[in-house]
Simulated scan of single mutants.
Amino acid sequence: MILTDRLRSIGAGVRLWFTPARVREEGTTPDYRFSLANERTFLAWLRTGLALVGGGFAVDQFLPRLHDVLRTTCTVVLLVGGALCAVRAVNHWVRCERAMRRGEDLPASRFPAVLAVAVGLLAAAMVVLVAIGWTR
């Protein structure tokens, strides 16, 4: 029962991604500057996602001598990270817009910290792998 309710809640949230006009049905309209700032944040997250996707393709194309398993792992991690950033961007945009309209605190998220740690660890691993010249 709890799982079913949770899935319905997630489904309702995802539907809002594709019908942003429905967000306006809640609460009162915030100062437009806050909505525009929320949109700029959304776009920044999309740029971050695109950069991660580009990094994934760069690893695959420009480190051909890196062991296949390592190259593929790093590529997939970056591509998945880019996809997660894109999904997180739209989800966070909707959550923030709804909170502003309701007069609530903006939602907190661990995603930026998790992403920063993951990218930092992956970058450090890549530096080590390139420095030691781990090739086939």
Score class of each variant (00 low, 15 high):
Val69Met: 01
Thr72Leu: 02
Glu25His: 06
Ile10Val: 15
Val53Gln: 06
Gly55Arg: 06
Arg47His: 09
Arg47Tyr: 13
Met100Ile: 11
Leu106Ser: 08
Glu25Cys: 08
Arg8Ile: 03
Leu115Gly: 06
Val23Met: 09
Cys74Trp: 06
Glu104Tyr: 06
Thr41Leu: 14
Leu129Thr: 06
Cys96Ser: 12
Trp17Arg: 04
Cys74Lys: 11
Leu36Gln: 11
Leu115His: 12
Met100Pro: 04
Phe42Val: 06
Gly103Asn: 08
Pro20Gln: 01
Gly133Arg: 08
Trp93Leu: 02
Asp60Lys: 04
Glu97Asn: 14
Val87Phe: 15
Gly56Lys: 00
Val80Cys: 03
Glu26His: 05
Gly81Glu: 08
Met126Ile: 15
Trp17Ser: 08
His67Ser: 03
Ala89Gly: 04
Trp134Phe: 15
Glu25Val: 01
Gly133Val: 10
Glu39Ala: 03
Asp31Phe: 00
Val128Glu: 06
Leu115Tyr: 13
Met100Glu: 14
Cys85Gln: 11
Val14Leu: 07
Arg88Val: 10
Val77Ser: 08
Arg98Ser: 09
Arg65Thr: 09
Phe18Arg: 00
Trp17Ile: 01
Ala21Leu: 07
Thr48Cys: 07
Val94Ile: 14
Val77Thr: 12
Val90Met: 02
Leu3Gln: 14
Gly103Arg: 10
His67Asn: 01
Asp60Glu: 02
Ala124Phe: 15
Trp17Thr: 04
Trp134Val: 12
Ala118Phe: 04
Leu50Val: 05
Ala123Asp: 11
Cys96Ala: 14
Ala116Glu: 09
Val119Asn: 05
Ala108Ser: 13
Ala118Leu: 12
Phe111Trp: 15
